[in-house]
């Protein structure tokens, strides 16, 4: 039985000046996988390839154990892009009529429940909504047909912190059913840090790491020391270092072990953003 809702193997796609290079990862059932990377890293390209919106050059993509090119596979996928794709002249009632005629499992009462919960006006045209309201509507529409997989491409962009928190709680509730999973690409690393089980970092079309979030957040650390102290640290004990004007900073995989080994160095906790910046911007291994 397939344990992954998404399985990507050796995915390649070339454009002018960009190559998605042998990308492989899985999105297991019952898990949230966060997908992070800088602008132009290839996150949206990867998502478009998974959704069969782009033709892949090489590799394999399976969703629910089936080829992603089969249209019926999308019956169980809810998708949210970084912009609202509904026409400005429609209202929520029009959207319901459209999507209920597309998705067999559309649940109108669930849709209206979400509209009420997130205070989306029912009679106003979507063109008059704020950006945040449009994103909330997109998320509601993705969830109202009870999918098994949510694919979110910058879905929380433009939402205020209160609403983002509500939406993230909704996502956590979504995966309580161990069959469901979420593949979530975002620049807001704090959102990924809050809810993801696994984190994948993509940089210039290549996967840099695919790690458990808890491992990253609870084990990784940042050593800060002077240049003389840095000279005493073995290169095997850090992943990457960078030299600033006042100190040297090293990203380490096990901060507790480093604290035990090097008694007189400062070791700080590392956030997901710190880890991402170290890998993308900084320094030397």
């Amino acid at each position: 039985m397939e344990n992954n809702n998404i399985s990507v193997r050796d995915l390649c796609k070339q454009f002018d000046g960009f190559l998605l290079d042998h990308v492989s990862f899985q999105v297991p059932k019952g898990r949230i996988v966060g997908f992070i990377g800088e602008n132009g890293a290839g996150k949206s390209t990867t998502i478009n390839l998974i959704l069969d919106e782009l033709k892949r050059d090489n590799g394999q993509i399976q969703i629910f154990g089936m080829e992603n090119t089969i249209p019926s596979v999308k019956e169980n996928i809810g998708v949210v892009f970084d912009e609202c794709n509904f026409h400005d002249v429609f209202n929520t009632s029009d959207i319901e009529k459209i999507l209920s005629g597309v998705y067999r499992s559309w649940d109108s009462s669930l849709y209206r429940q979400y509209l009420k919960k997130f205070k989306i006006p029912e009679r106003k045209q979507i063109g008059s909504f704020s950006k945040g309201m449009k994103m909330k509507l997109s998320i509601i529409c993705a969830m109202a047909h009870k999918p098994k997989l949510l694919i979110l491409d910058e879905a929380t962009t433009g939402l205020d912190p209160v609403v983002r928190d509500e939406i993230l709680d909704l996502f956590l509730e979504f995966i309580q059913d161990e069959e469901c999973s979420i593949f979530f690409s975002s620049h807001i690393t704090s959102d990924i840090q809050k809810i993801a089980d696994y984190v994948i970092l993509l940089h210039q079309g290549k996967i840099i790491f695919e790690e458990q979030k808890d491992d990253l957040v609870y084990n990784f650390g940042i050593v800060k020391c002077g240049r003389e102290k840095f000279a005493t640290i073995s290169p095997e004990d850090y992943i990457v270092h960078r030299i600033t004007n006042v100190s040297v900073e090293c990203l380490v995989r096990d901060r507790e072990a480093i604290k035990r080994k090097y008694k007189n160095v400062v070791v700080d906790n590392a956030t997901l953003e710190d880890i991402m910046l170290f890998y993308i911007r900084g320094g030397a291994a």
Binding site: L51, D52, E53, P71, S72, V73, K74, E75, I77, V79, F81, E83, C84, N85, F86, H87, D88, V89, V102, Y103, I151
Partner: peptide, 18 residues
């Protein structure tokens, strides 16, 4: 023109319709 303005095709390609 309305479809292009809303980038509707991108959303439609993610639907279970051929």
């Amino acid at each position: 023109a309305s479809d292009e303005k809303a980038s509707w095709k991108k959303y439609q390609l993610a639907m279970p319709v051929n």
